[in-house]
Each structure stands twice: as structure tokens, then as C-alpha cells.
Simulated scan of single mutants.
Amino acid sequence: MKTKVALITGGYTGEAEVSFKSSAFVYSQLDKEKYEVYPIAINLDGWYYTDDQGNRHEIDRQDFSLDINGKINFDVAFIILHGTPGEDGRIQGYFDMIGLPYTSCSALTSALTMNKGYTKAIIQDIPQLYVAKSVLLFEAHRSDAFNTVKEKLVLPLFVKPNAGGSSIGMSKVKSWDALQEALDNAYDAENTGKQVLVEEFVVGREFSQGIYRNAQGELQVLPATEVRTTREFFDFEAKYTPGLTEEITPADLNADQKSRADEIIKEIYIRLNCSGMVRVDFFLENETDKFFFIEINTVPGQTPQSFIPQQVRASGRTETAFYGELIEAALK
């Protein structure tokens, strides 16, 4: 009997468009001889499955089941839902309550890592890992945010929503005249909790690297990707506009740098009690050769061009085998 997989997609934010592209690719790669896969859209207008004839079937939220010529109960949820409620722990908490296994990090880890400032507080003492000097601002600080930042940090700066994804609402600030607009953009970014993280800029090479736990319980580090963009930084346009960014997988790291990066990423995964696949972004500072943490993504993009699929292929694996491992690990 095939394993019934609910492929969770959509979301309540502007990242839903990327989520649908990611889940479509995952669906195309999953082994249909082994898995019976149902893409489930979770949107503000409903939770539903759309069949091949275009008919919409609503999910019964009491037990996350479908009724299509009889009741369908799922064995596992494969979460490819970027932003809220898939990346912030909400859907994970729901699945925990009804007892449905899922492929991503737990509700607590997902909620914590969605908050960039809180995440930095937990990982900042990991050996050989550094964090940029920063200020975390809440809504109550908004009226005096400009002065607070100017007193504590030096230019240039990164200003970003503390709980956002896909670089939405993020700005690089090179002059104090541009700071207020950047703060307002970050505060007002949709569904990000009106919290802002401001960090001093690290001059160096930017990398992104995936890691996951396989069905045998072993941590598997994927090859790193180096990101080189023609933009000021790796913003939303650079991420999703062809031709603006060069992505090199595997990255050109020497043996020492690769060894350090792998150990750091393993410790981040363990320290944050991660599950499934995650992606860690970091800088390698030019002058010091130190690794600086940027952020962790617990539901990384899965389009054919996304970092994780690139890294899976570079490691000699197929996406079909990789996604199968994530499902089998979740079932255990």
C-alpha cells in the first residue's frame, strides 16, 4: 500500500507564489510508485485539494482528512509552505495536536528560527561562528528607532523585518539619510510582526548551505552554494529574477573553510533542535576569514533553481531519493 502524503503548499503571505512553484517541483520528483501525493493548498480562503478535473475538495480540519469517494487520512505531511503558517510553527503545532507526522522542524524550532534576533541569541556562542553587531527593534521602539540605531551601530547597515522571508522589506543603508525609509519598509512588511533587525554590514563572500537528517538519523551536510549578485545585496529581485545572480555549486572553499563550515552548520542544526531539511546562510568575511551567521531557513525553496536542489544534485543524489529520505525520516 502506498504512503499517503499531504504536500502542504500556499500560505498567507506574498511568499505563496514561490511556495506553489516549490511544491510543484517536489510533486514532480516524488516517487509515485511509492507515494500517493495530494497537494493541499492552505490559503486564507480555505484548506483544500484540487483534483485533476479542477474540483475543489475542502480539508476536514478536525483530523486533516479528505472525503473523495470515501475518507482519506494521510500518513505524513510534506511541508513546502513558505512564510506563515508553514514556516513559523503554526501548522506544525496543529499537526502535533492531531498526531500527523511532518517533514519540517518542530513548532517550537520553527517559531524560534522565524525570529532572526532570537535565533542569533541562541547560536552566538557556537565555536568559530560569529554574528554581526545588531539592534532588535519592537513596535514600541518605532518612534525613536532612528536615534537608537545611530547611537549603537555604524554604517553601512542591513535593515530587515525580524520575522520575514524571501528578503521582503530588506534594505542596505549606506547613509543616515536613507535609514528612516528603510526602517519604515521593514516595520510595515506584511505579516512580519512589526519587529526590525538592524545589523552592521559584513564585507565578504555570501554562501548558503543545506543540511538534513536522513532516515537512519544521520546528519547529512550538502555542498555549499556561493551567491554572487549584481544587485547591492541578495534581495527579492536578485533571488527571483533570472540573470541578476550567479550561483556556484559547489562553492569554491578550501579544505579548512569547508571543514569549518560543515561543523558550524551541524552545530547550528543541533543547537536549534532542527528536523528535516534546513538551509543556513552565512558570510565569509574578507579580511578575517571568519564565518558570520545571516539566518536559517526551515522551509527552504524547492524550485529546480533553488539552492537545495542544486546542492542535492552536486552531492550526487537525485531529488527523488532526497525527498523520499525526508518522508521516511518523518515517518520514523
Rank of each mutant, 00 (worst) to 15 (best):
A24S: 14
A24Y: 13
A24H: 05
A24N: 14
A24C: 07
F25T: 06
F25N: 14
F25R: 09
F25W: 12
V26A: 12
V26G: 05
V26P: 07
Y27M: 15
Y27L: 15
Y27H: 10
Y27F: 13
Y27K: 13
Y27S: 14
S28Y: 14
S28M: 09
S28W: 12
S28H: 06
S28T: 06
S28D: 10
Q29R: 13
L30C: 06
D31A: 06
D31P: 08
D31C: 07
D31S: 02
K32G: 10
K32C: 03
K32S: 09
K32A: 13
K32R: 11
E33W: 04
E33H: 15
E33Y: 08
E33I: 10
E33M: 08
K34F: 09
K34M: 13
Y35G: 09
E36K: 13
E36A: 07
E36G: 05
V37Y: 00
V37I: 03
V37E: 02
Y38D: 05
Y38I: 04
P39R: 02
P39W: 00
P39H: 03
P39G: 06
P39L: 06
P39Q: 07
I40C: 02
A41L: 14
A41I: 08
A41T: 09
A41M: 14
I42C: 07
I42L: 01
I42H: 12
I42W: 04
I42P: 05
N43L: 15
N43Y: 09
N43F: 11
N43M: 15
N43A: 12
N43E: 11
N43T: 14
L44E: 08
L44G: 04
L44T: 14
L44D: 15
L44R: 10
L44K: 11
D45G: 05
D45M: 04
D45S: 01
G46H: 07
G46T: 04
G46F: 09
W47D: 03
W47V: 09
Y48N: 08
Y48V: 00
Y49Q: 05
Y49R: 06
Y49C: 02
Y49F: 09
Y49D: 02
T50M: 04
T50F: 03
T50E: 05
D51S: 00
D51E: 07
D51L: 00
D52V: 14
D52I: 10
Q53A: 15
Q53M: 09
Q53C: 11
Q53L: 15
Q53Y: 12
Q53R: 12
G54F: 00
G54K: 10
G54M: 00
G54Q: 01
G54I: 00
N55K: 10
N55D: 15
N55G: 13
N55Q: 10
R56Q: 13
R56M: 14
R56T: 13
R56P: 07
R56C: 10
R56G: 08
H57Q: 06
H57A: 02
H57K: 05
H57M: 04
E58N: 13
E58Y: 10
E58H: 14
I59M: 03
I59P: 01
I59C: 04
I59W: 10
D60A: 08
D60M: 10
D60H: 07
R61W: 15
Q62M: 12
Q62P: 12
Q62Y: 12
D63H: 13
D63Q: 05
D63W: 03
D63K: 15
D63N: 12
D63G: 13
F64C: 00
F64E: 02
F64T: 06
S65T: 08
S65K: 03
S65Y: 03
S65F: 02
S65A: 09
L66F: 05
L66W: 00
L66M: 01
L66I: 00
